[in-house]
Design a protein around this nucleic acid. Sequence first.
DNA 1: TTCGGCAATGTTACATCATAACAGCGGGGT
DNA 2: ACCCCGCTGTTATGATGTAACATTGCCGAA
Lengths: 160, 160
Amino acid sequence: MAARGAAQAHQTHNHRECIEDALKRAREICAGRGAQLTPLREKVLQIVWRSHKPVGAYDVLDELARSHKSARPPTVYRALDFLMGEGLIHKIESLNAYLGCVEAGAPHSGQFLICRQCGATEEIVDAKLETALDQAAKQAHFAGERKVVEISGLCARCAA
Amino acid sequence: MAARGAAQAHQTHNHRECIEDALKRAREICAGRGAQLTPLREKVLQIVWRSHKPVGAYDVLDELARSHKSARPPTVYRALDFLMGEGLIHKIESLNAYLGCVEAGAPHSGQFLICRQCGATEEIVDAKLETALDQAAKQAHFAGERKVVEISGLCARCAA
DNA sequence: TTCGGCAATGTTACATCATAACAGCGGGGT
DNA sequence: ACCCCGCTGTTATGATGTAACATTGCCGAA
Ligand SMILES: [Zn+2]
Ligand SMILES: [Zn+2]
Ligand SMILES: [Zn+2]
Ligand SMILES: [Zn+2]
């Protein structure tokens, strides 16, 4: 099991372990590809993983700057671009924010459930939904590449 | 038939008529609700409808300023917010841009096919996809509200 | 060993997208 | 006449993202 699903985001879980799993997996994936997960990039990945809520680039910057004074916007955006390119994080388009991927290593567009109350965002992998997307594109004679699926609402915890 | 589907966006079609249909429909909808489709707001709607490609707020501003010198960013964003509130346009989150709605009057989140080559964007209404979204949320005990579905790729014309 | 290429990072400046806050104006009701 | 309220004007600023060039450090070729 790669990284624990964000389904547990709302429940108490050992998030320290959750982060460590993600970082460990990232190191393995990059090593296997010859991609350079530098200390800077790993630090940014760690910051993104600090919560199960999407984090803005400038929030990452603020946090990064605590240990890395020379950090500037390009520092962060380059690292985020690298991490997205390696499939280690996703961008949540409707929030202009970034989230650790729970299925890193398996190339995919993400599908997200975003709680408007608590901010917790769960990445789901739904085959039927994936099929429906492909079918919809095919029916319109459209060659789909990147898919953005973001559902906002209330998580189970917040709805209760 | 309300507004012609953007499926025809790539084919030659009488776009002047296409715009007129959309504006006429918008007037009817707003009149029926007591919503004030002021000349300014209608002008912004017209500008958004000038093409079947999503248009940025500042592009709208540039165009609007040709006939309306006092136009400023808030002028445009207020109009766009009104038009979104009335369901007459959609925001394309992955492009930070706005597009006329082809199903105005029927409240819905849009589903979009965005050509990365020519920019033409088609709004589709796919019941199976809608169901798959609802099922996916339900399965995760998530109360979905707003749904963002944007598929980028190549339209039939550009793929050929 | 020295040098040149290349990827990563540093650094400055700027581009793009969006909103806060308050002022002015004008129609409709009392 | 007066107030209320929605729309628009106006100034300023916040938030997000990128261009362009400089510097560093490693590694392989000459
Ligand atoms: Zn966790
Ligand atoms: Zn929640
Ligand atoms: Zn048209
Ligand atoms: Zn195209």
